[in-house]
Simulated scan of single mutants.
Amino acid sequence: MAVSFDLFGTLVEVTPPDDPARAVATELAARDVPVPSDWERAYAERHVETESGAELSLVEHVVAGLDSRGVAASEAEVRATLLDAFATPVRMKRGARAAVGAAAERGPVGVLSNCSVPGLVPRVLSRSELRADAFDAVVSSVDCGWRKPDERAFERVAARLNVSPSELRHVGDDPDTDGGATAAGATSILLEDVPLTAVPSHLENAE
């Protein structure tokens, strides 16, 4: 048995910016990147087409948004901008450490998180009491290319954990995204049914 955990809302709580476009603009300006006068409109527009279920990197979106207004910025510059724009305090959820520890006692354990900002998931983990090296695999949608509930996201984390999807149990807080594990042949454990503090006993009973 292998266990994957959703990150945001499951293992940790974060408070994203109230106005992401403004937060990004502030960090762009701090790097002397010209901010278009209609940046909020440009940020809201679709610039890159993706297929259903695919994740679009926010780096690619911002670079294309700036380019649509005649502003050039490198991907490295924008990536650093986004990591700072979305840097918020990280609060560990009660029971997170025990749940991850219980999963690790039974087999490989990973993180599977929807996140469009490259590098943000490892950064959040590094700022929590759970370090990335506590997991056998850390998979974000921007890295694997697919957003939960797309089956390919769950298949990817299962492959990284060296198990078949049928051997994977996925713990998450969102029925619409984390519940998609069942379509991939995995088992979903939703926090509305099994609180995080009860996950250790749930895993023990599932053996």
Results as ranks from 00 to 15, higher is better:
residue 47 H to A: 05
residue 82 L to E: 03
residue 196 L to V: 10
residue 143 D to I: 00
residue 107 G to I: 06
residue 139 V to W: 04
residue 111 V to K: 02
residue 30 A to Y: 08
residue 2 A to Q: 03
residue 4 S to G: 14
residue 74 S to P: 12
residue 104 A to T: 12
residue 178 D to P: 08
residue 139 V to A: 04
residue 29 A to D: 13
residue 160 R to P: 13
residue 56 L to E: 03
residue 96 A to M: 01
residue 75 E to N: 11
residue 122 P to E: 01
residue 42 A to I: 01
residue 119 G to I: 04
residue 20 P to M: 08
residue 175 P to L: 02
residue 3 V to A: 01
residue 16 P to R: 07
residue 142 V to Q: 10
residue 205 N to T: 15
residue 13 E to A: 14
residue 56 L to T: 03
residue 107 G to S: 08
residue 116 S to P: 15
residue 105 E to C: 09
residue 55 E to K: 00
residue 110 G to T: 07
residue 32 D to N: 14
residue 23 A to P: 08
residue 19 D to N: 13
residue 18 D to H: 13
residue 109 V to T: 13
residue 170 H to V: 05
residue 180 G to Q: 04
residue 27 E to C: 12
residue 179 G to S: 02
residue 63 V to F: 00
residue 16 P to L: 05
residue 60 E to L: 00
residue 35 V to W: 08
residue 188 S to N: 13
residue 114 N to M: 03
residue 88 T to K: 05
residue 33 V to T: 08
residue 112 L to N: 09
residue 134 A to L: 10
residue 70 G to A: 04
residue 158 A to W: 00
residue 63 V to K: 01
residue 112 L to E: 04
residue 194 V to I: 10
residue 44 A to H: 09
residue 30 A to C: 07
residue 141 S to K: 02
residue 46 R to V: 13
residue 177 T to K: 11
residue 88 T to E: 12
residue 128 S to K: 05
residue 22 R to M: 10
residue 148 K to N: 09
residue 161 L to W: 10
residue 169 R to W: 11
residue 88 T to P: 11
residue 40 E to S: 15
residue 185 G to C: 11
residue 16 P to V: 02
residue 21 A to I: 03
residue 142 V to Y: 08
residue 101 G to N: 06
residue 53 G to S: 00
residue 78 V to K: 00
residue 26 T to H: 14
residue 83 L to W: 04
residue 120 L to F: 09
residue 118 P to Y: 02
residue 184 A to W: 01
residue 66 L to N: 07
residue 191 L to G: 14
residue 112 L to M: 10
residue 190 L to K: 10
residue 174 D to N: 15
residue 73 A to H: 02
residue 165 P to E: 01
residue 33 V to G: 04
residue 7 L to I: 08
residue 135 F to S: 04
residue 82 L to Q: 06
residue 178 D to K: 02
residue 113 S to P: 11
residue 62 V to M: 01
residue 24 V to Q: 07
residue 90 V to F: 04
residue 118 P to S: 05
residue 70 G to E: 01
residue 100 V to A: 10
residue 149 P to R: 00
residue 51 E to S: 13
residue 148 K to E: 05
residue 146 W to H: 14
residue 87 A to C: 03
residue 140 S to M: 06
residue 142 V to T: 14
residue 45 E to I: 00
residue 149 P to A: 05
residue 177 T to Q: 10
residue 138 V to I: 05
residue 78 V to S: 01
residue 140 S to I: 01
residue 187 T to R: 12
residue 166 S to K: 15
residue 44 A to C: 06
residue 172 G to E: 09
residue 14 V to Q: 03
residue 142 V to N: 09
residue 32 D to F: 14
residue 98 A to I: 07
residue 116 S to Y: 13
residue 184 A to G: 11
residue 14 V to P: 09
residue 206 A to H: 15
residue 72 A to F: 12
residue 67 D to N: 05
